[in-house]
Amino acid sequence: QEDFEAGLPVAVLSESTARRLFQTSDAAGREFQLNYVTFRVAGVVKDVSNLATASYAQAWIPFTSTSTADFSWCDYMGPLSVTILPRDEADVPAIREEYDRLFAELGDEAKINGWKFILRERPYTQEVTANTPWASVSPDMSGVYRRRIITYLILLLVPAVNLSSMTHSRLRRRAEEIGVRRAFGARRSVIMTDIFLENLIITLFAGMLGLLLSLGFGLIFGGTVFAPGFGTSIESTGISLGILFHWSTFGWTMLFCFLLNLLSTGLPALNASRINIVNALTGKR
């Protein structure tokens, strides 16, 4: 805090940058030149993936050690932005309240000079920021959610229709087997449950196989596939399992597959359970 308030030229380096400059990551206390200014290394941290656009850097310095804070338009607008990481989601309302209070005070000051702030529902969460590309446009999250739901429904219904036809065709070839089970007293509910569980087991195995293939592909080709936009950095993208894999995402994916399995198996399983025993045993359709 003292270094920040004094605007001292100190820096925190990423491990790869420290090794590039000093051939070692143990560089605390050493000095380097940045824009013809001598900076002292205050510490070294692990590399940050440049997919994390709000936190990625190779060197972090106090903005008070530069003239950035003095560069502004109309005395109120400048190049600085702030990203806040709350300790808990319950702190977000308090953050918004303080934000509104501070901007109300700044707005009263701006009115004296003939200016007015248009906040457009700020501050934004990360989700809103990702779906609001222009600073001069208010976020339309209802439209985003609506398009997202339509997309999910299409992704569910179209494959479900195709898979349902495939399941129906496969069950027709097993008509004799189902007829024998019905002849020996198997209830329709048992047959439907068995057919559903068969497809569910296949879904689980396919989900795990897809997860392994996705992680392998991401680790091998992640630097190309997940490359950030132009101008983000000159370094290759750092990809780790912690970035690629989250249990919540995998859980939602498997739930999606479960619903798809339910939609594609339900009607064929119901039809198979209602098959006439005599027709099934004689091979009639």
Rank of each mutant, 00 (worst) to 15 (best):
P228F: 08
T253S: 12
L259K: 08
F4C: 01
I61A: 04
G216R: 06
S165F: 14
T129M: 09
A269S: 13
F63E: 12
A135T: 11
M192P: 02
G266F: 13
E2D: 09
F4S: 02
R96W: 09
M166T: 14
V190D: 10
V161I: 15
E105G: 05
I195Y: 07
N261V: 13
L213F: 14
Y56F: 14
F221D: 02
L262G: 04
N261D: 14
V180G: 04
F103A: 03
V37D: 02
R274G: 07
F39Y: 15
P79R: 11
C257A: 14
L212P: 01
T53E: 11
R147K: 15
N199L: 08
I118R: 10
H246M: 07
F205G: 12
R181Y: 08
L13E: 00
F230D: 13
G242D: 08
K46E: 12
I118T: 05
T53S: 13
A28W: 02
K111Y: 03
V137I: 15
F39K: 06
R174A: 03
G7L: 05
G238E: 08
A227P: 00
V44A: 01
N35M: 08
H168I: 03
V12S: 01
V190A: 12
M166G: 03
I84K: 03
L156F: 11
R173M: 12
L106N: 07
I150G: 04
N131P: 00
F32H: 01
V44P: 02
I234A: 13
W247Q: 11
V45A: 10
R174P: 00
D47A: 01
M77N: 12
S233V: 08
T224V: 12
L211W: 12
H168F: 10
L85G: 06
R30I: 00
D108Y: 06
A186Q: 05
N261E: 06
R181H: 07
L215C: 11
E198I: 09
T167F: 11
K46H: 09
L13G: 00
N162R: 11
T125D: 04
K284E: 09
